[in-house]
């Protein structure tokens, strides 16, 4: 494993990787006799079997969210009549959301409320007898406390994975502040788009090279400084109205702000070794952290303690070694507030 941010070292990354691969290959053959059976590894069937009581909670109260047949997220069942919380950035733009709770499939699930601050969406499915989660009294868990989450899933059966609280609860500031996700020409006295960043809100909204931004949120902007000042008052995840001129025509777009540090161009070495991490993984008011393996499509589900009570909701696979969850105190407030809003 290379150190982070090591750029001009004598041991260049490419060379290092080649050597590492060579080392790994030798390793594979030399070890065949000296290896623990898969079933007994931390994520193995014989180990996770001990979490059967917790698995039953997950089976009933952790939803699986699909885009068509593709699993895209998990969810937390928060009411008997079909309200389910999930990770907003994994379900937005998905028109055909399908939800499974226990063995039952619900088609035509709808996003009814979203909270950009926490990246949480409230889904509604047509149900009457779901089993909502039971909240723990608080998330004050010492480092090293067991927690259990939804692991792999099949049509009829949820499997679980266990791990521990791995770091202190804390705020995760937005990586680099809010940005539209465009590069602007600097030598003009107008805001002409030079390039649109891959994966940015600007790209999603359909901004194009050559567009000239004239106003944001109804305020006229002519220079980068003014634009930056305007965006400062916003957060990553907020949607802003952008007016622009394209080929002489006036166009209005709703652009979702990205966190500067999360735009695709900034993929670090640690990101490269992290596999499938969450698109949005920063800008959370407070999180707890655990060490359970997962991928971006396993976010949104409940994190429960050994008593089967919810201590948090998985909100971001931050990297290879760190997963963030919304603490139960904030989660409960969010759920109650969002459901009340939806019922209005």
């Amino acid at each position: 494993m290379e150190k982070m941010k090591r750029s001009n070292s004598s041991l260049g990354s490419a060379e290092f990787l080649t050597r590492l691969l060579a080392a790994l290959l030798c390793f594979g053959t030399a070890f065949s006799q000296q290896s623990l059976e898969t079933d007994f590894r931390t994520t193995g069937a014989r180990v996770v079997a001990v979490f059967e009581p917790q698995r039953q909670v997950i089976q009933q109260s952790s939803a699986v969210i699909y885009q068509g047949r593709k699993e895209i997220a998990y969810g937390v069942v928060v009411s008997a009549d079909g309200y389910i919380l999930t990770k907003a950035s994994e379900v937005e733009e998905v028109s055909n959301i399908v939800v499974r709770v226990d063995k039952k499939l619900f088609k035509d699930a709808k996003v009814v409320v979203t909270d950009a601050n926490w990246d949480v969406a409230l889904l509604k499915v047509d149900a009457t007898e779901l089993v909502p989660v039971i909240y723990a009294s608080d998330s004050k868990l010492d480092q090293g406390t067991w927690v259990v989450v939804n692991g792999v899933t099949s049509r009829t059966r949820r499997r679980v994975l266990g791990g521990v609280i791995s770091a202190k609860a804390r705020e995760i500031p937005a990586a680099g502040g809010p940005a539209l996700g465009v590069q602007l020409k600097t030598d003009e006295d107008r805001l002409e788009v030079q390039a649109v960043s891959e994966g940015s809100g600007a790209e999603e909204a359909g901004m194009k090279e050559g567009d000239v931004i004239t106003s944001v949120e109804g305020k006229k902007v002519k220079e980068i400084k003014a634009l930056v000042e305007l965006l400062k008052e916003k957060k990553a995840g907020d949607v802003v109205k952008v007016s622009l001129k394209r080929d002489g025509k006036k166009i209005e777009l709703d652009v979702k702000l990205s966190a500067k540090g999360e735009l695709f161009a900034n993929k670090s070495r640690n990101d490269q070794m992290s596999g499938d991490y969450s698109k949005r993984r920063s800008g959370f008011p407070r999180v707890i952290q655990h060490d359970i393996l997962g991928a971006s499509e396993t976010m949104g589900g409940p994190v429960i303690d050994l008593e089967g009570r919810v201590v948090g909701m998985n909100i971001a696979r931050a990297n290879r070694a760190e997963t963030f969850a919304i603490p139960v105190e904030e989660l409960k407030n969010l759920a109650e507030g969002m459901v009340a809003q939806a019922r209005k």
Partner: peptide
């Protein structure tokens, strides 16, 4: 400093 040192609980799966 805000996060502190990160712990991971796991098992020993290979030796050489």
């Amino acid at each position: 400093k805000e996060r502190g040192v990160v712990v991971r609980l796991a098992r020993l799966v290979r030796m050489a």
